[in-house]
Nucleic acid binder design. Structure first.
Length: 355
DNA sequence: CACGCGTGGGG
DNA sequence: TCCCCAAGCGT
């Protein structure tokens, strides 16, 4: 790479950022805790979605100590609807590490910060450069896209080796001064101008040194392998209820919607009928079901699974029987408080519909 | 290194 | 309606 190209990217990008940077709540100061929380929320998640969550989260847990001392239920609740829930479980765990095992401060060296759950190469670079002014790359999807175009890199950006290559490129281009601004400028450029489709090249501050623009291949880059299609699954969610009580299920600590409260959910084997599954389950577990009512169905798409969910109401004769360990009786009034993913809220909507 | 892990928005 | 995504990480 020529010295001229490096210089152009540095100066043009920083100048552009000075004029065009977005006014975002986590940019009000350089508090490492705020930067950290914002970076975790922003993983695979759009800025507009994150903003209200960030504001609420900071009111609830203004410092890392507040977060560490908060009950897990409250922390998970604050993340409700944001998705990728392992992020918040890791965040909470890391806060406890910092407060109870460390000195109560976010580590400012790469080796230590990478030991925290939920902080990988990208997030470490973002926090260290933005909050601690260290010259460390923060290569996310935006930066990969910008650099794959600037240098016409046709390798699959999903591969690990390509990302390493990008990191060393960014490292070479980064200025000594304002590394945090430089990283954020790259991300803002990727988010607002160097977009995945129909990029705004005519507005781009680094168009003059962009190889993809020169070759007219900005729409073809970056190269990214296609994800495989989601698995289709038929599910049943059940409202087991008796008087003002219903049964909630705490999901396993690992896997889909890990650790979240919701409704007992069953997968229907192909060719089976949903009521057959529920009836069999009740019989085997000596659950005193009085009747089964199909309330309706809805679709829910995860990144890698597609659920068709049938909602069933089961009236129970009494509460005097043993529940599976992950199930608990909850008050109906607390339904909305006790269910922490959008897929359950869809079930409530279906339930409230008239039959 | 491939896979699992949510959700809502835009073209 | 459909498809692509958006500031990744842990295993």
């Amino acid at each position: 790479m020529s010295e001229e190209k490096r210089h152009t990217i540095q100066t043009q990008l920083l100048a552009w950022y000075g004029q065009n940077k977005r006014d975002l709540p986590w940019r009000k100061n350089k508090d490492p805790y705020r930067i950290w929380v914002s970076e975790i929320m922003l993983q695979q998640t759009r800025v507009d979605t994150v903003i209200p969550y960030f504001e609420r989260f900071m009111k609830l847990f203004p410092t890392v100590e507040d977060l560490a001392n908060a009950p897990e239920e409250q922390v998970l609740k604050a993340w409700e609807g944001l998705g990728y829930y392992s992020r918040v479980r890791n965040l909470h765990q890391a806060a406890k590490q910092i407060v109870h095992e460390g000195d109560g401060k976010i580590p400012s060296d790469k080796k230590s910060i990478l030991k925290l759950k939920g902080i990988g190469t990208y997030t470490a670079g973002a926090v260290l450069s933005i909050a601690f002014d260290q010259k460390i790359p923060a290569v996310d999807g935006n930066v990969m896209r910008v650099f794959s175009r600037l240098f016409a890199i046709e390798e699959d950006i999903a591969s690990g080796t390509t990302r390493k290559k990008m990191e060393s490129l960014v490292e070479r281009v980064m200025p000594e001064e304002a590394p945090g601004d430089f990283n954020q400028a790259l991300m803002d450029l990727g988010a607002t101008i160097c977009t995945p489709v129909s990029p705004g090249c005519l507005l781009c501050p680094v168009r003059s040194v962009c190889e993809a623009y020169e070759k007219g291949m900005e729409e073809q880059l970056p190269v990214k392998k296609k994800a495989k299609p989601p698995v289709q699954q038929e599910m049943v969610m059940v409202f087991f209820q008796h008087q003002n009580l219903f049964i909630g299920e705490k999901r396993p600590e690992q896997g889909l919607l890990a650790g979240l409260w919701g409704l007992p959910t069953f997968e229907i084997p192909k060719g089976d009928h949903h009521l057959t599954i529920i009836e069999k389950f009740c019989k085997e577990n000596r659950i005193p079901a009085l009747n089964y009512i199909i309330k309706g169905e809805f679709q829910h798409v995860f990144s890698h699974r597609h659920w068709k969910v049938t909602v069933v109401e089961v009236e129970l004769k009494n509460t005097g029987f043993d529940l599976p360990t992950s199930w608990s009786w909850l008050e109906k009034e607390k339904r909305e408080e006790k269910t922490w993913a959008n897929v359950y809220h869809k079930a409530f909507k279906t339930e409230r519909k008239k039959v």
